[in-house]
């Protein structure tokens, strides 16, 4: 099983071949078009700005990995059917945003689930935990009451 971690995902996009999905999945069937769509949705959730966005950090791979390994078969099926419904609607209407789709009963489960996986992947990425809100492996202590303004880390 290959997990494309954050470092790999920073490589230039030419390492991706056009006809193949870029990670091995045990259960989910994802074709290259679907992968592309999931990647662009990930960037719609967390876009690259001055700082890295979702696909720069490989978060769409992380999300797929989590669905593939940690969802049970019911959860996986729901994810896939919601995703397929979204993909169909999106190809009919290019202006369909995730936000709008979240209001639709058929797509809501997928949209919210994917969003929270991307958000989780972001907050638990090496980038975020070293550069944005640094994680200390060895905090050394606990301060039980400090002004909010002074708080540096979680």
């Amino acid at each position: 099983m290959i997990w494309m971690g954050a470092t790999v995902a920073f490589l230039p996009s030419c390492v991706y071949r056009q006809d193949q999905v870029h990670m091995q999945l045990k259960h989910l069937q994802i074709n290259p078009d679907q992968e592309k769509l999931l990647a662009s949705l990930a960037d719609e959730i967390i876009p690259a700005t001055q700082t890295p966005g979702a696909t720069d950090l490989g978060l769409h791979f992380f999300a797929l990995k989590m669905v593939d390994d940690c969802y049970d078969s019911v959860g996986r099926d729901q994810f896939m059917s919601g995703f397929k419904a979204f993909a169909e609607n999106r190809s009919a209407d290019n202006a369909l945003t995730l936000e709008k789709a979240a209001a639709d009963q058929k797509m809501a489960g997928f949209v919210n689930g994917y969003r929270s996986l991307i958000v989780r992947g972001y907050k638990q990425s090496e980038y975020y935990m070293t550069k944005v809100v640094p994680y200390k492996l060895v905090p050394g202590g606990y301060k039980g009451c400090i002004p909010v303004t002074a708080a540096a880390t979680t």
């Binding site: 606990y142 301060k143 400090i146 909010v148 708080a151 540096a152 880390t153």
Partner: peptide, 11 residues
Amino acid sequence: GYMDSTTEGRR
């Protein structure tokens, strides 16, 4: 309450 306060580190 204590909206201006927080904690730091882990316990």
